[in-house]
Amino acid sequence: EVPFKVVAQFPYKSDYEDDLNFEKDQEIIVTSVEDAEWYFGEYQDSNGDVIEGIFPKSFVAVQG
């Protein structure tokens, strides 16, 4: 069931425009499960802007 919160276990950096880049310990709200390997989610950056994109499930852990 979406949405749910995950926390980055590792930093994720990608050159693909659709990917969500983040640092370790970033909290991310997952709004869609793309497939067995990928989530789609969002978070607010330090400027208060909402950043969204896809990212690999293996880089995050589900909270709770």
Rank of each mutant, 00 (worst) to 15 (best):
Q44I: 14
Y39K: 00
Q9L: 15
V7D: 01
Y43E: 01
V33A: 08
V7F: 07
K24Y: 04
P56G: 04
Q9V: 14
A8F: 03
D45L: 12
G41A: 03
E52W: 09
Y39R: 00
A8P: 01
V33H: 06
F4E: 03
G48Q: 02
F22W: 01
D18V: 11
A36S: 12
E52H: 13
W38E: 01
Q63S: 12
K13T: 09
Y39F: 09
A36P: 13
G64T: 11
E27L: 12
W38V: 05
F22T: 01
N21G: 05
Y39T: 00
T31A: 03
P56Y: 05
Y39G: 01
S14H: 02
V6W: 00
E1H: 11
E34L: 15
F59R: 11
V2E: 03
Y39M: 03
I51K: 14
D25W: 11
E42T: 12
V60D: 04
F59C: 15
I29G: 00
F40R: 15
A8T: 03
P56Q: 02
V33D: 07
F40A: 06
W38G: 01
Q44N: 08
D18Y: 14
K13C: 14
W38I: 05
A61H: 10
E34V: 15
Y12C: 06
S32P: 03
V60L: 02
I54R: 15
Y43D: 00
G64L: 09
D45H: 06
Q44F: 09
F59G: 05
A61Q: 13
G41P: 01
G48F: 04
S32D: 07
A36H: 11
I29A: 03
S14V: 01
S46T: 11
I29C: 15
Y43Q: 00
E37A: 08
T31R: 08
F40H: 11
I29S: 07
D45P: 02
F59L: 15
Q9A: 08
D19T: 14
A8G: 03
D15V: 10
K5M: 12
D15L: 11
P3Y: 07
K57H: 05
D25Q: 05
E27G: 03
E1W: 12
E23I: 06
D19E: 14
V60N: 00
A36F: 10
P11H: 07
V33I: 15
A61L: 11
G41I: 04
A8W: 03
T31N: 05
Q9H: 07
Y12R: 08
F55E: 00
F55S: 02
Y16V: 13
V62L: 13
P56K: 03
P3N: 06
L20W: 03
G64V: 12
G48R: 03
S46L: 11
D49E: 10
V6Q: 02
I54M: 14
E52N: 11
V7W: 08
K13Q: 10
D45S: 10
V50N: 07
G48Y: 03
F59T: 12
L20V: 00
V6E: 03
E23F: 06
E34C: 15
K24T: 06
Q44L: 14
G48S: 03
F40I: 06
A36W: 08
F59N: 08
D19N: 14
P11Y: 05
G48K: 04
K24P: 04
K57I: 08
K24M: 08
P56I: 03
E42A: 09
D45F: 05
D45I: 07
Y43C: 05
Q44M: 14
D35K: 07
F4S: 02
Q9I: 15
F59H: 15
K57M: 09
A61V: 14
P3F: 06
G48T: 02
S58M: 08
E27N: 05
E23Q: 08
V50Q: 08
W38T: 11
D25A: 07
V50G: 03
K24G: 04
Q63L: 14
Q26W: 04
V2F: 09
V50L: 11
T31G: 00
V33P: 03
D19I: 08
E37D: 13
E27H: 06
I29K: 07
L20Y: 02
Y12I: 03
V2D: 04
L20M: 09
D19W: 07
S58L: 07
D35H: 07
K5C: 13
D45T: 12
V33M: 08
I29W: 14
I28A: 00
I54V: 12
F4M: 04
E23M: 07
D18F: 15
E27R: 05
E27P: 05
G53T: 01
E37T: 08
E34P: 15
S46I: 12
E42C: 15
P56S: 04
